[in-house]
């Protein structure tokens, strides 16, 4: 998902406190920043919320790439609003992470020097306008699958950030579907572009949910803590089941010859993505990893004088006011 392969941190806390903490979670209580919490819970959440926040921020890059070249002024305004929302999502989540005792600069630097990850999906390029439609439809669609249950997560600030985010995501998915639908219903050439976008983004979208459950070793603790609400395969299946009819409506073909409805299971059978590709992308060898990190580093470095200048100005103003009083 936006947070993939989050390793649950081991916890070495007083067993009695741990049991009381677990009982609070089991009773559906929210954990707030000043409450006692196991060190493992705190560390796992910093990593998970941080990775989620970084994904929102880095996720602006592939879409931002097309703002200046949107086909109409209306599409441009919509895409701009969508990308601006993603910046907001990043900020809500960074603030939630900060309540756990990590500073904004620390967590930013961990992204910039590669110690923290962001979702693998944003290491794929957006080659043309059809990709922008496909990203809203598939990538935001996949994100929603996991963000909706996370509204019920046990950590209060994370849950509240998710509630805000979910209110805005439906716009993202619908504008994407609307954009790709325009192309699927357009000229044969446009329809071909829409199909090509689906072909390239289908498996990377399935990868967003993380490795298959049989290889996903860290889920149990996170699920007990209610910071992971569903298994990777559960969410992936839900996404496939929801997306297939949407593709059919567009007259587009999911690039999976073995995809078929399984009457018995009541779900679609589908082919897993190539997990070796996924692990390569996670390791930094995807098509855009280098570009993405370079862009974030450049933005951070180029913005340093603005951050410093505004802070110096604020301090000077405060000192002057102080002297006048």
């Amino acid at each position: 998902m936006y947070a993939q392969m989050i390793k649950s941190e081991a916890t070495q806390d007083d067993p009695e406190k741990l049991a009381a903490f677990q009982a609070r979670i089991d009773a559906g209580e929210k954990i707030e920043p000043k409450d006692w919490m196991p060190e493992g819970y705190r560390k796992t959440l910093i990593r998970q919320i941080g990775q989620h926040a970084h994904s929102e921020i880095v996720g602006q890059l592939p879409e931002g790439n097309w703002i200046t070249r949107a086909p109409t002024l209306e599409r441009k305004a919509i895409l701009l609003a969508k990308v601006q929302d993603e910046a907001g999502h990043g900020l809500y989540l960074y603030c939630a992470a900060e309540t756990l005792g990590v500073s904004r600069d620390e967590i930013t630097e961990m992204l910039l020097d590669g110690r923290m990850k962001y979702s693998s999906i944003f290491n794929y390029p957006t080659l043309n306008w059809a990709d922008i439609g496909a990203v809203g439809w598939l990538v935001d669609g996949a994100a929603i699958m996991n963000q909706v249950p996370l509204q019920r997560t046990s950590f209060g600030p994370y849950s509240r950030a998710m509630i805000r985010i979910c209110k805005e995501e439906s716009f993202h998915q619908r504008q994407g579907y609307d954009a790709i639908r325009k192309m699927a219903e357009g000229t044969p050439e446009q329809k071909k572009m829409a199909q090509d976008a689906l072909n390239r983004l289908w498996y990377p979208s399935l990868m967003m949910f993380g490795p298959s459950d049989k290889d996903s070793v860290h889920s149990a603790q996170s699920m007990a803590w209610k910071i992971k609400m569903n298994t990777n395969d559960e969410l992936r299946q839900k996404f496939v089941d929801q997306t297939v009819p949407q593709a059919e409506y567009l007259g587009l073909t999911i690039p999976d010859p073995d995809l078929k409805w399984n009457e018995e299971r009541g779900h679609y059978d589908y082919t897993d993505p190539d997990w070796s590709e996924f692990f390569e992308v996670i390791k930094g060898n995807g098509p855009c990893n280098v570009d993405r990190l370079a862009a974030r580093n450049k933005a951070w470095d180029d913005g340093a004088w603005v951050r410093d200048g505004l802070l110096a100005h604020a301090k000077k103003k405060a000192a002057r006011q102080h002297a006048a009083e």
Partner: peptide, 8 residues
Amino acid sequence: VGSLHAPD
């Protein structure tokens, strides 16, 4: 509603 960073 939440928090944010700002110089002033």
